[in-house]
């Protein structure tokens, strides 16, 4: 989930074209969960092949990545490694929520309430190790690199953006800003028409860009202070203080200068404050990866998606044509190579 700063900062709408020839590090799990929860049939069940294996994550990985490649973008997916011990609480809550949603989904189906069924079904999305492996295989066939993070994928993506190896970190969460990504892109893998949750309304979703320096400038704080705000509000790694949302957190930080001072002055109870802070300011990252964008292997993609997972050949061909077009323009160098 991550922290929600949407009340405080306003991302700028942009288009995929703005990222032409640029590398972008995508939060892999975040993207796969999106695919899994949004790519579903009318009754809410995920797409499956005839053997009952879920294929929503592959449909998403293939077609959404194809869109990016067509635009001449160089995506790299970054997957979470072992979760930090402090994330256990969040993961437990998510697990329970999924179990509950599963029950409600089944009830809604029995009652014939399709709208609720779909909503509840989306909340049951569970990624298995096999599914992640399949997505990685598919990326290999598409010539798209991926990185296994030490801990948090967003931390790793932000690190790569800080180093300048990628232009931006892409995620729906704002946590990348706390991790220090100079540029955050939202909606990258879900631009296009999307159904609004719980309403029968479709909206056009466009990518949004958020610059860390601008966000900090607008809020009038430093990155450390932003991290402190996050820890007070609650993150994936701590529950935060009840009653403190983005606005209140900002006020406290501005008034007292730091999270520590605010906690002292207001006698707040924030367990593991320093440890959580450290996760954002000194995250565990790895340098053990190479970023190389190859060209797709049409035959392997076809064998994997059509023969193995029963995708329709025709749609696949046209998507692969788009990829080929995009990978051709990628031969365009940027001037950055000569600085």
């Amino acid at each position: 989930m991550g922290i929600d700063l949407s009340d405080l900062v306003e991302p700028r709408p942009c288009s995929l074209k703005d990222f032409k020839a640029r590398a972008i590090a995508i939060d892999g799990y975040n993207a796969l969960y999106q695919f899994l929860s949004s790519i579903r049939q009318a009754d809410g069940s995920p797409l499956m092949d005839s053997k009952g294996r879920i294929t929503s994550h592959l449909t998403g990985t293939f077609h959404r990545t194809a869109n990016l490649l067509e635009a001449g973008i160089k995506p790299v997916y970054v997957f979470d490694g072992k979760p930090n011990i402090l994330k256990a609480g969040t993961l437990q809550v998510r697990r329970q929520r999924k179990e509950k949603a599963q029950e409600q989904w089944e009830e809604a189906l029995k009652a014939g309430d399709m709208e609720t069924a779909r909503t509840k079904a989306q909340q049951t999305s569970k990624l298995t190790r096999d599914m992640v492996k399949q997505a990685k295989d598919l990326l290999n066939y598409m010539g798209v690199p991926w990185v296994d993070a030490e801990e948090d994928g967003e931390a790793q993506a932000s690190y790569m953006a800080q180093k300048g190896e990628v232009y931006a970190a892409a995620s729906q969460d704002y946590d990348s800003l706390l991790f220090g990504a100079p540029l955050l892109v939202r909606n990258l893998t879900l631009s296009g028409r999307r159904k609004m949750p719980r309403r029968n309304v479709y909206v056009d979703v466009v990518p949004e860009i958020l610059k860390l320096s601008e966000a900090l400038g607008a809020l009038g704080i430093t990155r450390e202070q932003l991290v402190d705000m996050g820890v007070l509000m609650g993150t994936d790694f701590n529950p935060g203080v009840k009653g403190i949302g983005p606005k209140k957190a900002l006020k406290l930080i501005k008034e007292f200068g730091s999270g520590e001072a605010a906690i002292k002055a207001k006698e707040l109870d924030v367990p593991s404050f320093h440890n959580v802070r450290k996760i954002f300011l000194e995250p565990k990252i790895t340098d053990d990866y190479t970023l190389e964008w190859g060209t797709m292997d049409r035959e392997k993609i076809e064998r994997f998606l059509c023969d193995d997972f029963e995708f329709s050949g025709q749609r696949l061909q046209s998507a692969m044509d788009k990829i080929a077009e995009g990978q051709k323009t990628r031969a365009q160098k940027s001037l950055d190579s000569w600085f």
Binding site: D18, K20, A21, R22, G72, S334, L335
Partner: peptide
């Protein structure tokens, strides 16, 4: 000035 794709300056 540099264009957004950093191809031209």
């Amino acid at each position: 000035a540099v264009d957004p794709a950093h191809v031209a300056m």
